[in-house]
Design a protein around this nucleic acid. Structure first.
Lengths: 136, 136
DNA sequence: CGCAATCGGAACGAATCAGTCCGATTGGAG
DNA sequence: CTCCAATCGGACTGATTCGTTCCGATTGCG
């Protein structure tokens, strides 16, 4: 029940990005220096966040990343899903995945979706704007 | 943001145990057969749950495990913590742990405890009695 | 047209996790 | 009282995933 380091770093980096002017081009190098995250790791993360649609990427000299949406529109759940994949407590909540051999007689399976939604709601209620707010 | 397989199994096994009479002695072998969890893994889990205080263990012939509390008194959070350790999204929420080198200037750190509590609350709201209920 | 800067994907190493096995302890039978 | 069977408890091994690092592809500027 712990967040991966990558997801943790992603939150910190996006929070730092949210403090810059909305349309500013942030390079991975800049954010790495501001946050203290190792540069190669920062590059990997930014790429993954861009692939998820949270950032728009621009290549070449003077390129960089820009937040695709406003800080209030991005939630913790979005960031976590972008880095770690879909939020699914168990494998049986992802439709199409049936690794569990007990599913036909599993009494707890019907309850997982509700728990999963509750957890996702808790993370979805926290916006990037709140996190970037600092004291609080 | 996924539960470990061990924690998943633990929930299934405790749910199965909750369906038995309150004071019945359940051996790891019995529960393993009922749930389909591999026996050695089941043994490891039961031991860990007993160490956490959710079960009381009795050794020797005719021994086994008994729920230390009523099914309504055991929550998902308890089970997860017993198997995976304390629920801490990031390392900086565990007091005494200071692996993060940025903590002094981290703007998101003040917000983690609230998020952590929200998440723990979501898991704490689901009791073992609910999970054992079956259809729901 | 050449160069510098930046993003994107691929390869390596480490840590954790899942699974398995064997020893320690307890209760009952002879 | 002694021996045996049954069960819990901890230690070891293999595999998967995570985290990090490095190198190539692409773009804009001089």
């Amino acid at each position: 029940m712990r967040l991966s380091s990558l997801a943790d770093y992603a939150v910190v980096m996006l929070s730092a990005a949210a403090r810059h002017p909305a349309a500013a081009r942030l390079s991975a190098t800049t954010l790495a220096e501001e946050t203290g995250v190792p540069l190669p790791t920062a590059q990997k993360l930014m790429g993954r966040l861009a692939a998820a649609g949270l950032l728009t990427s621009a290549r070449g000299t003077g390129g960089g990343f820009v937040l695709a949406k406003g800080p209030a529109e991005i939630s913790l759940a979005d960031i976590v899903e972008a880095v770690e994949g879909p939020i699914a407590l168990t494998s049986c909540v992802e439709h199409g995945r049936h690794d569990c051999t007990l599913e036909h007689a599993c009494s707890v399976r019907p309850h997982w979706p509700a728990v999963n939604d509750a957890l996702r709601g808790a993370l979805g209620g926290v916006s990037l704007a709140t996190l970037a707010g600092g004291h609080g």
